[in-house]
Amino acid sequence: MKSFLTAIVKAFKLFISYQKTNLSAGMEYRAAFFTQVFAMILNNSAFIIFWMILFDRVGTIEGYDFQAVMFLWALAAVGFGIAAVFFGNSTYLSRIIYNGELDVYLLHPKPVLPNLLMSRTHVSGWGDLSYGIILFLFTQDTSISHLFLFGIFSLLFALILVSLRVMYHSITFFMGNAEELAARSSDAIISFTLYPGTLFKGPVLLVLHTLIPAAFAAWIPYEIIKNFDLTKLLLLIGADFVIASIAYGVFHLGLRSYESGNRMGARL
């Protein structure tokens, strides 16, 4: 138990030191940093107009109204922002694997996957993060319980998104460059989560609960926040951790077949 806690504390310390370094690197180009953050907020805001006009024209859509869709947008923006800011390398895994750049991480006395995922940040992710929080505060119920649930769901969204990327990028270990496939699966989950879950019917729903688990990332959280159900919440957390464990397992299985590229390199 003590060693488990020590591992958690060590991982947290690593996380904090990576974030400090990443943030100070981003702030090195201060003007570019704030331009990207501000532009991303504006960029995302454009979609509010789309939904406003649409709901104004057609009323509710399959049980979702403007506020419900804005919840999905806020959740996806914060979840995506967390993944981009804190686990920025999740979109580059294939490239790192097939370029033989994994060697550098294997030599570190740290757990490979978290170390790898945290070592890059996307500055624009701060824009998504800020946008999602502002959107939530302006369009949703801001009671303590809702804020708390929203925080949990945002972390879970990021967990699913990063896990999905890890899973699909890990195909590169077995079958060659899977960068496009991983990018498209990431696009897919984000795209689906931005629309009411009730729109999708038939066999596609099975895909949206398994290969592209948009249901766990956004639609079930929406149902829980609308009508709170503790059992459902615990089941959701369990399902999300199963997805994360599968991703972790697939990555480490792939790591066994990884062959060094004999590439000389250093991370400064």
Binding site: Y29, A32, T35, L42, N43, A46, F47, S124
Partner: peptide, 28 residues
């Protein structure tokens, strides 16, 4: 400018919404 990507993001969103990419402008 150091980074011009943000200008393009905004432009594309103008096409998305004001340009009628998601639905015809007649619905505005």
């Amino acid at each position: 400018f150091e980074e011009v990507g943000p200008f393009y993001w905004i432009l594309t969103k103008m096409v998305f919404i004001m340009g009628g990419l998601f639905f015809p402008i007649d619905l505005f």
